[in-house]
């Protein structure tokens, strides 16, 4: 029996070789002439103030949490969708219930303003 993932491994090796080749080529061929000005973080010419690691809006964290919720939903949907015809109406109603609960989640997040970015 031929291992089906072996070609993927070969492709991974080839892709890594391509990426590393590009990377090494530029590291070796590119000149390095650092000047004090060049070493500053680029901020369109104005002087840097404060640390570069600034605090980000909490919206990004909310998006990340919503992503976890809905990506797991997608993970649950995939096996259902591929066995959909065998499960028939029973499976459909079950999935309808599941999606309704998640729909309520989305509506709740929406009403709470988790999807608004202007404020």
């Amino acid at each position: 029996m031929f291992p089906v993932y072996l070609p993927v491994l070969i492709l991974l090796i080839v892709a890594s070789a391509v990426a590393l080749g590009m990377f090494t080529a530029t590291s070796l061929a590119g000149p390095k002439k650092p000047t004090p000005e060049k070493m500053l973080p680029y901020e369109s010419g104005s002087n840097t103030t404060g640390a570069s690691h600034l605090r980000m809006s909490v919206k990004f964290y909310l998006t990340a949490i919503l992503f976890v919720v809905f990506d797991i939903e997608a993970v649950f949907l995939y096996p259902w969708a591929s066995l959909f015809r065998e499960l028939g109406w029973f499976g459909f109603v079950e999935m309808l219930l599941f999606l309704t609960i998640l729909g309520v989640t989305l509506v709740y997040a929406w009403k709470k303003g988790a999807l608004e970015w202007e404020k």
């Binding site: 992503f67 990506d71 959909f84």
Partner: peptide
């Protein structure tokens, strides 16, 4: 990540 969720869900009808 947001659009990955959307992308994953848009193609579920294909599997069905």
């Amino acid at each position: 990540v947001s659009y990955e969720v959307a992308l994953g869900l848009t193609i579920v009808p294909c599997f069905m």
